[in-house]
Amino acid sequence: MPRIIPCLDVRHGRVVKGVRFEELADSGDPVILASQYADQGADEIVWLDIAATIEEAQLSLNLIAQARALLAIPLTVGGGIRSLAHVEQLLAHGADKVSINSFALSHPDIIAEIAYRWGSQCVVVAIDARREADHYQVYKNGGRLRTDWELGEWLRTAQDQGAGEFLLTSMDRDGTQAGYDLAMLQYAQKHVARPIIASGGAGSAADVLQALKAGQHAVLLASLLHQGKTTIAALKSYLIQEGVSVRWPV
């Protein structure tokens, strides 16, 4: 069954969501939102939080623990992970998986180290990429810095290091609500034998339907939900009506 996964971008303890990685807007308490999404039938939660200071890091750990106590679905936490000690803290506060992005691009070994200690299923490698002429290029630091990695090359490297899953965001589509970047997702699937979560561009339930009918197995949702355009329950009942088998929470 395909997975419908709300993403919470958290800053200073609040959920925000950028449009094309800019213009951050506040849309709520992450613990309350995560719990509401789970009650409505979210299949997992992704929580991305970059803390700049020790106080912020402690605040986000406390919030993750509060969310964990309420959530009976998988919780993936990411944002600014640079060490095994940080991963250990996130898992100890109730994350089931961690999502790693920028640091892994310059230190691919950290993927192998996390996979060795906690298993591949624990490592989600998040990738931000955009089209450049005839190929897809990987960016880091929230899309601000271009890297030397071509998308297919980085996917294969990360898989070889032990990535259990990928979260692939199209920078060209993120925040535009113009639909998922199916061409990029299909390109990525040719390079790796791991589940890929599609991210960036969902503007309507029809966009989600189109991605699932095109063979995607997991989709990430942010602004579509946070801005109240639809709910998980409304989205899932629409998908079921359209003949897609998704989990209905009972």
Binding site: M1, R3, Q121, E165, A193, R194, A218, R247
Partner: peptide, 10 residues
């Protein structure tokens, strides 16, 4: 071909 098997199943 695609492993792990991740997600909800009946």
């Amino acid at each position: 071909q695609v492993l792990p098997h991740i997600g909800w199943n009946t």
